[in-house]
Every structure is written in structure tokens, then in C-alpha cells.
């Protein structure tokens, strides 16, 4: 397997390490103003992290285009399949982050319970072309679950702007 099998992942990896490098430098920098007891740890950890990032970037630069041991499949975390590493695979996954953001927006306006009632069938029908009845049944079941969890486990759900304006159980 050559390194350029996953060009997007490779570029993102470089970008991520650069972002972490900036973060580590910022941490070490911002910690300068802290009291002694709170300062040393972030300063040294930040500097160590920045140094490691530089080493990793150098490694990536040196091994560019070469097959290296460290570009073999990762055994320390769940593996990713090849078709997910394409541009289309990335966009597909990102679109679901968009859906999740939509769920949050609905929650912010309508509160969590009503947001679930709107979000779940929308996702199932619009995105997955699921049968209407099954989608409605899942949404209904979820509302029952949310209500039951609030009652029996005393969970609280996020409230929306419309809190207090809607009838029970919303």
C-alpha cells in the first residue's frame, strides 16, 4: 500500500498536526501569566507537544512518497475502509454532521422532545427513504422513551426557546 492511497487523509493529517502545533505553542504562551503552581505544567507540556509535532511534520516530509512502516494499517484504533477515504466518503460523513447540527438547531428552538419528533422522521424519510410508518413508529417510541427517562431516571432534557409554550410532553 503506498502512502498516496489516501491523499485526503494524508493532507488532513498534516493539517491536524499543524493545528496541534499551533495549539501547543498557544498553550505554552498563554500559560506565562499564570501563578507558578499553575504555570509550569502547561508550559512544559506545551513545549514538549510542539517539539513532537515538529518531529512528526519532519517525518511526514522525509517519508513523502515512500512506503514506510508507519503508513501501514493502524492497529491501535478502529480501522477505516478505503471507500470512506475518498472525497465523496468525506462529504457523505460531513453531511451527517450537518444533520446533527440541524438537530441541535431544532432543539434550541423547540426543545429536545419536539426536536426529536421533527428530526427523526425527517432524517429517516428524506435521507434514507425509510417507510413512513416505520419512521413515525421510531419517533413515537423515542418520545415515549424520553418521557419515561425523565420520569423514572429523573433525566433532564435541553429546553428550547418555546419552553413553557407547548403542551405536555414537550
Amino acid at each position: 500500500m503506498t502512502q498516496d492511497a489516501y491523499p485526503i487523509a494524508r493532507r488532513l493529517r498534516t493539517a491536524f498536526v499543524v493545528a496541534l502545533l499551533i495549539l501547543f505553542i498557544a498553550v505554552a504562551w498563554a500559560a506565562q501569566d499564570f501563578r507558578l503552581g499553575a504555570r509550569l505544567f502547561p508550559v512544559y507540556i506545551g513545549m514538549a507537544g510542539a517539539a513532537l509535532c515538529v518531529i512528526e511534520l519532519l517525518r511526514q516530509l522525509i517519508t513523502r512518497g515512500r512506503q514506510k512502516l508507519s503508513d501501514e494499517p493502524n492497529t491501535a484504533d478502529l480501522s477505516v475502509e478505503a471507500d470512506e477515504q475518498t472525497a465523496a466518503g468525506y462529504l457523505r460523513a460531513l453531511s451527517f454532521f450537518g444533520w446533527m447540527l440541524g438537530y441541535y438547531a431544532l432543539t434550541f428552538v423547540f426543545g429536545f422532545t419536539l426536536a426529536t419528533v421533527i428530526f427523526v422522521p425527517s432524517l429517516l424519510i428524506l435521507r434514507f427513504r425509510a417507510p413512513f410508518l416505520a419512521s413515525a413508529a421510531i419517533a413515537g417510541g423515542l418520545v415515549l422513551l424520553i418521557v419515561a427517562l425523565q420520569y423514572f431516571l429523573m433525566l433532564r432534557v435541553p429546553r428550547g426557546l418555546t419552553h413553557g409554550m407547548l403542551p405536555w410532553p414537550f
Binding site: V17, L20, V27, F41, I45, A48, G49, S70
Partner: peptide
């Protein structure tokens, strides 16, 4: 696993994340 440097960077990032809040 096969990504020691990235792993260690991750651990350092975790240490950093853990600093947020009261010292």
C-alpha cells in the same frame, strides 16, 4: 500501534485538554 509519534502527540493533546479548568 504502528503510529507511535502520532499516539504520543495525542496523549500530550489529552494532557493539554485536561488542563482546562481549575488548576
Amino acid at each position: 500501534g504502528s503510529r507511535p509519534i502520532l499516539g504520543i502527540i495525542g496523549a500530550v493533546a489529552g494532557l493539554t485538554l485536561g488542563m482546562v479548568g481549575g488548576a
